[in-house]
Amino acid sequence: MSTAQQLLLEGCTDALGFVGGALAGWGLAHVLGLELFAPGYGAGTIAAIALVGLCAGLGLKLARFGRARMRVQTGKN
């Protein structure tokens, strides 16, 4: 696989992990009754924003972990 293909794969998996994690965080906030887009910055809105950010970061970390694990299993560095 060429360097350009590797970089494209890395960018796409990072984006999917980040967006997927953010959507999971938004869904979790919604289930918990926290309104992300409420007017003003109340405690519930701040908690929802933090939850979305945390889940987005975790999704990105999970995507990178999966990519590294796949590299180890296939024997490619």
Rank of each mutant, 00 (worst) to 15 (best):
29 A>K: 07
48 A>F: 06
68 A>F: 03
54 L>R: 09
12 C>W: 10
9 L>Y: 08
48 A>D: 09
66 G>W: 01
75 G>N: 07
71 R>V: 01
74 T>R: 11
32 L>V: 06
35 E>Y: 07
43 A>E: 13
43 A>R: 13
12 C>T: 12
29 A>W: 08
55 C>M: 10
24 A>M: 12
29 A>G: 15
64 R>Y: 05
15 A>E: 01
4 A>L: 14
4 A>E: 15
29 A>Q: 08
70 M>Y: 13
13 T>R: 04
25 G>I: 11
4 A>G: 06
2 S>T: 14
17 G>C: 00
18 F>P: 04
32 L>G: 03
23 L>M: 15
21 G>R: 01
5 Q>K: 13
24 A>L: 15
69 R>N: 14
32 L>E: 15
1 M>G: 15
70 M>R: 14
4 A>M: 08
36 L>R: 08
25 G>V: 12
56 A>T: 00
8 L>K: 13
41 Y>D: 13
15 A>T: 09
23 L>P: 03
13 T>A: 05
61 K>Q: 11
2 S>G: 15
77 N>M: 09
45 T>R: 13
64 R>W: 02
52 V>Q: 06
41 Y>L: 12
48 A>R: 02
58 L>W: 07
16 L>W: 06
41 Y>M: 11
24 A>W: 01
36 L>V: 04
69 R>F: 10
18 F>N: 04
2 S>D: 13
58 L>V: 11
56 A>F: 00
64 R>C: 07
50 A>W: 07
12 C>E: 10
75 G>M: 05
51 L>G: 07
13 T>G: 00
58 L>D: 02
2 S>E: 04
16 L>S: 06
18 F>A: 14
65 F>G: 01
40 G>P: 04
20 G>V: 04
25 G>K: 06
15 A>G: 05
52 V>L: 11
12 C>D: 02
67 R>N: 08
73 Q>N: 09
20 G>S: 02
62 L>G: 08
41 Y>P: 02
14 D>Y: 06
16 L>M: 13
40 G>K: 02
39 P>W: 07
20 G>K: 00
56 A>H: 03
2 S>M: 01
41 Y>E: 14
11 G>C: 08
76 K>R: 15
70 M>K: 10
6 Q>H: 08
50 A>S: 14
12 C>S: 10
13 T>L: 05
44 G>F: 05
24 A>F: 12
54 L>N: 05
30 H>M: 10
6 Q>R: 15
6 Q>C: 05
75 G>V: 05
15 A>L: 12
14 D>W: 03
44 G>H: 08
60 L>Q: 00
